[in-house]
Design a binder for these strands. Structure first.
Lengths: 162, 162
DNA sequence: GAGAGACTACTCGGATACAGTCTGTCCGAGTAAATCCGG
DNA sequence: CCGGATTTACTCGGACAGACTGTATCCGAGTAGTCTCTC
């Protein structure tokens, strides 16, 4: 059970979009070059973000993506669920109903204990992701990235932002 | 990102093995019939448990599986990792190193902020799974399963346990 | 110089292809209990 | 009745196949700026 690489891509792209000045858009092409990724396939991840309403998009030249909300309002969970889907990581197939000792008329009520525990773990994972926003991420990145590199990167980005 | 169904199977099988009297073994065939699962494929999951050292096995007739430790010493995480592998659910491909603004001689130290956050969430998930043992599960199952069904099931199981 | 039309650069969505994983089946090798057979 | 050989029932492991998902590429449709051309 490993998250798709699109999740990583989407998170890094959102980190860049967080630093974009109000009203500017950045194209898939620029984001792909910045991260060394295949443009066409990266666009799938960005489309997922768009469908989830996390980013706005404009067509035409100088078009591209920008965040639809403020960085403080977008959580890691939002992004992960946009790309990966919102289904729980554990699905219960109720195999307990195949028990040959089960009377024909018996009907289980509620999810089984195994599923409940797995879902609690899933929820702990989601809760952690829900607690971190893009502005938290930006703060961490600013602290650990050399100042010059940070400045150069955003100069590069702004040179390509429409 | 959805866990394989083998995880569900392994958990339910371990729940049954937890209730087995000391020294008795239960075969793949019996476990498969009890849960309505394909015997051959279920055996893959049980082999994973065996390789992880969670269950003991004996060959020959009246052979099968039994728990290698006491139910209180086997956690959900043990079982999930035995089947699903121990790799983290998020892999960092360090795409930040593809940044064209990066000086040639620069070398990042330590994992990037995105990965650290994703790994913390992963750890929260694992921590929850680590906190629940098979004896906890057994306690929940006893409480919510009708007494007769529970009794019938283990009568059925003991009739097939070597 | 201004407005209409053509052009360009981009997003979006669908179609396609390939690889890897998940699910499932089959079979042979090895092992331990049960059975059989000869003394 | 006893001990050794055979049979049986099971685990284990590998080989194999089909379905599904993840990864990746390509192309056409649509859109918004830009450019050009005409008046």
């Amino acid at each position: 059970m490993i998250l798709k690489s699109q999740v990583e891509w989407a998170l890094h792209c959102c980190a860049i979009l967080s630093g974009l000045p109000e009203g500017r858009y950045l194209s898939t092409k620029a984001l792909a070059e910045l991260h060394g990724l295949p443009k066409e396939y990266l666009s799938k991840a960005l489309q997922s973000l768009s469908q989830a309403g996390l980013v706005d998009t404009t067509l035409g030249p100088s078009g591209g993506y920008r965040l639809a909300k403020s960085p403080g309002q977008v959580t890691f969970l939002d992004i992960v669920e946009a790309v990966e889907g919102e289904t729980r990581t554990f699905v219960c197939n109720n195999i307990r109903t195949n028990n040959p000792c089960l009377p024909d008329d018996y009907c289980y009520s509620g999810p089984c204990a195994v599923a409940r525990i797995m879902w609690e773990a899933d929820e702990a994972w989601r809760e952690k992701l829900r607690s971190v926003t893009l502005s938290d991420l930006e703060r961490m990145l600013v602290r650990e990235t050399p100042a010059k590199l940070w400045k150069d990167t955003f100069a590069w980005v702004l040179g390509r932002a429409g």
